[in-house]
Simulated assay, not measured.
Amino acid sequence: MPNQKFLGAWSPHLLSLLRVIVAFLFMEHGTSKLFHYPMQMGHIPPFSLFWFAGILEVFGGALILFGLFTRPVAFILSGEMAFAYFIAHAPRGFWPLLNHGEAAVFYCFVFLYLAAAGGGPWSLDRLLRKAH
């Protein structure tokens, strides 16, 4: 069994690592919508819901990645993912695995956690707080 003291000491740093990894993965959804990278999503009409989702995913994801305004941005992204789930996935059926909404549910709750927990010690939020 892992040493609880060791794991407890690393908990804040693992929060920052979770934030960075999740934000990087989340940004790929936006870059696919807006820039067709790393995969092509087809034509997304400007100012459509899908386009606005891409904007939130790229720029909100970047803010989360760097840990800047983590709490409010994570709260907004959590709402975006809840909205995405209920608009795009839930109408296809109840179970997230079957309606392909498990990623939206996952991101929704990770961002909700980050809205409550903050960005951790490796974040620009922490750096700016120390500067004042």
Rank of each mutant, 00 (worst) to 15 (best):
M1Y: 09
P2Q: 14
P2N: 15
N3Y: 00
N3E: 03
F6K: 14
L7C: 04
L7G: 02
L7D: 05
L7F: 09
G8I: 11
G8Q: 12
A9T: 13
A9E: 14
W10R: 12
S11Y: 07
S11P: 03
P12K: 13
L15F: 04
R19N: 01
I21N: 08
V22Y: 12
A23E: 00
F24C: 11
L25I: 15
L25P: 01
F26W: 06
F26S: 04
E28I: 15
H29R: 04
G30A: 06
S32L: 01
K33H: 04
L34V: 03
Y37I: 15
M41P: 06
M41T: 12
M41I: 07
G42I: 02
I44D: 02
P46E: 07
F47E: 09
F47K: 02
W51G: 00
W51V: 01
F52N: 05
G54D: 02
L56Y: 10
L56K: 06
V58W: 03
F59E: 05
G61Q: 06
G61C: 06
G61V: 03
I64Y: 10
L65E: 00
F66A: 12
G67R: 12
F69D: 05
F69R: 09
R71A: 11
R71C: 13
P72S: 10
V73Q: 05
A74G: 09
F75Q: 09
F75H: 06
L77G: 11
L77Q: 11
L77I: 13
S78G: 04
G79P: 05
E80I: 11
A82M: 13
F83L: 14
Y85H: 13
Y85Q: 08
R92K: 15
P96Q: 07
L97C: 08
L98Q: 10
L98E: 09
G101T: 05
A103L: 15
F106L: 15
F106W: 14
C108Q: 11
F109K: 14
V110E: 08
L112M: 12
L112S: 04
Y113I: 14
L114M: 08
A117I: 05
G120T: 02
P121C: 06
P121D: 10
P121E: 08
W122Y: 00
S123R: 11
L124S: 01
L124V: 05
R126L: 02
R126E: 15
L127H: 15
L128K: 07
L128Q: 06
L128S: 03
R129Q: 14
R129E: 14
K130T: 02
